[in-house]
């Protein structure tokens, strides 16, 4: 367990440090039409995208915006919308599948495995850097700004308290409680 500044205990999630090997690839497995996260105990059934594609997307999502304090599930929630959009929009589906195919090809020529199987974050990030001016990367990165950071469940993990009017604001809840200055 690690503790945040105000003493709240947090489960030891998302253990993938900068040099940790292949944890994402190991944690998320594909079974049938779903991906399953053994460590976090959740599954996600895909509608339109292949589960392998969704697995790759979740790993890409973390590689783009890596927060060691966030579980993979938040990244999966952020990426789920691509599956939903792909179900109703062929162009989106083609864009996502094309992007993953490109990344997989780059990964195979450099490391002999697909993107999701590349063991080291630093190597995956180097692959992403080769495509970060393209439409696929832009869409995934741009979409995550709201898709990840606008999830109310992640806010407390960053110490952001969200809505406050219904609680009477902060006038009696620490607007000027700083003591370390």
């Amino acid at each position: 367990m690690r503790t945040t500044q105000d003493g709240r205990a947090q489960p030891n999630l998302g253990r993938r440090g900068f040099l940790k090997t292949g944890a994402a690839a190991a944690a998320i497995v594909v079974t049938g039409a779903a991906i399953i996260h053994s460590g976090e105990a959740w599954g996600l059934e895909t509608k339109s995208l292949a589960p392998q594609t969704m697995r790759a997307l979740v790993i890409i999502a973390r590689d783009i915006f890596p927060h060691d304090r966030l579980e993979d599930k938040y990244y999966a929630i952020a990426m789920k919308s691509w599956d939903e959009k792909s179900a109703s929009d062929a162009a989106t589906k083609a864009m996502i599948e094309g992007g993953i195919a490109t990344l997989d090809a780059l990964a195979k020529s450099a490391h002999g495995v697909t993107y999701a199987e590349v063991a080291w974050e630093v190597d995956r990030v180097a692959l992403l850097r080769q495509i970060d001016h393209g439409a696929f990367f832009g869409a995934v990165q741009g979409g995550m700004l709201a898709g990840l950071y606008n999830q109310q469940d992640v806010w407390p993990l960053f110490g952001y308290q969200g809505e406050s009017a219904s609680k009477g604001g902060y006038i009696h809840r620490g607007f000027n409680d700083i003591e370390w200055l």
Binding site: Q5, Y160, Y170, I171, G174, F175, N176, D177, W180
Partner: peptide, 8 residues
């Protein structure tokens, strides 16, 4: 240490 700039 925390600031909580969003408060107030």
């Amino acid at each position: 240490k925390p600031v909580h700039m969003f408060r107030g």
